[in-house]
Design a protein around this nucleic acid. Structure first.
Lengths: 254, 254
DNA sequence: ACCAATTTGTCCGTATGTATG
DNA sequence: TCATACATACGGACAAATTGG
């Protein structure tokens, strides 16, 4: 394979479409093109890069997927901030393909939710607290409908993340939460006592957060997480099995 | 714009290249194409989808970027597991573009590293512990060279994540660690006492993990994190400023 | 180690639908 | 309303690289 007296490195010809994508990406990351600004039309890019139209288009597809560019009202290509949800969805899919277990998900999610609620207790504003209270009220109203409660539970934890005012935590918690919260519905459907316990935990958490009580926030989030895992086990699921893809339809569809 | 007596919904024509990408993605996510299996040649896809080759190629670019498909040694397209590092890099870039602050990064990273080291204390095997000990020994050897120490520090925390045997934590911690660990070098360069303190913390953490002592692991990781933040402040940086893109070159280059 | 078939990378030209001014 | 610009999609072509005898 490799000759003894090699003098030259292997030439790795990078495809032109990749170079096009790299060039545009560099401009955006270096902030020479700001989010919201137009990239230019395909014809302009063809002229600037000196490659064919098809090549430019392939390059654009690469960036489109990563969320760095975005076609505005159908037409113009503009630079954009990659949105969290998009990235989170990809991460979730990767986790599914890697067949992670519920235990792994639970451990990570618990740690992240606790860290998040502690920050929420520190930084929550009146606005967000009002939203949280509204959420808890809605959950009480919907307590007979497991699907609605599960949906509101997901929203509750997103609001806590919003209250934390920490975008890194928001970003880090989203992929696992996307995977784990759908199981809430299954748990609630099987366990009668699930809904009242969930509502109590949520109410206590909102109380603690609104009092800026970090310790109580942490404690109730921990209890909430433990309930959740116990619910999973009592629903007859094995925490060491890969999470069931059957229940994850919502993650698979874009 | 909208007429009063509308009978039909707006037709949103999804581009053909997008449909091609979606179709292939569905097959992979549904496990009808397993990771490692070939997708087929472009010509075959042209025949199956009944679209032009350029269209197929654009669709392929979308999947290529998301990591679901991969060009093997030659040119063949095969399905693949999206690798963590690839996704983590994208997340890191998103954080940079969103101009997150060091404080946000520090809070999230601290929470994640502590959760990770606790799991490591529970699940670490002899193999990984040996790797950790080797890492600490190397760090002691290299203690005069801040760049080398920073590099080994990053590796140390990756090994802790490996020891945790929790892939979700591994995935969740990587984006923020990619951003925060490069600052280590800057801190170490400015603060003489940084290196010995880092080495001591690492040694204590390895000790605690190898004794499966969760409490001690947590404690020393927390101290390590606090050192780090104090170092950042003493190096004259403001924790509430967006992280400096100047120091993040390594994240920007693929 | 050579050769033929296949496959990818790139290019050209063209047609069509549609958003914008 | 209409003209223009632009993105989408198609068909065909050729050179270089890879594959599999």
């Amino acid at each position: 394979m490799t000759e003894t007296g090699e003098k030259f490195d292997r030439i790795n010809a990078i495809p032109a479409y990749q170079l096009v994508a790299d060039a545009i990406e560099r401009e955006i990351l270096a902030r020479r093109i700001r989010p919201g600004e137009p990239i230019g039309t395909e014809a302009q890019l063809v002229k600037q890069f000196g490659v064919n139209r098809s090549t430019v288009r392939e390059g654009i597809r690469l960036l489109e997927q990563s969320g760095l560019i975005h076609r505005d009202s159908g037409r113009r290509l503009t630079a954009s901030l990659p949105h969290y949800s998009r990235l989170a969805t990809r991460m979730s899919r990767a986790m599914l393909l890697h067949e992670v277990t519920f235990r792994e998900l639970w451990e990570a999610t618990t740690a992240l939710e606790i860290a998040t609620v502690e920050q929420a207790a520190e930084h929550a504003t009146a606005d967000v607290i009002a939203e949280l209270q509204a959420n808890v009220a809605s959950t009480e109203q919907a307590s007979a409908d497991p699907a609605a409660v599960a949906e509101l539970d997901t929203q509750f934890h997103s609001l806590i993340a919003k209250a934390s005012q920490n975008r890194v935590l928001q970003l880090a918690r989203e992929p696992s939460s996307l995977l784990i919260f759908p199981t809430t519905e299954i748990i609630l459907r099987k366990l009668k006592e699930g809904v009242p316990r969930l509502i109590q935990a949520h109410r206590k958490i909102v109380d603690a957060v609104s009092r800026h009580d970090k310790e109580a926030s942490r404690l109730w989030m921990l209890r909430h997480a433990n309930d959740w895992r116990r619910g999973f086990e009592r629903a007859g699921k094995d925490v060491d099995q890969p999470i069931d893809r059957v229940y994850m339809k919502e993650v698979m569809t874009r």
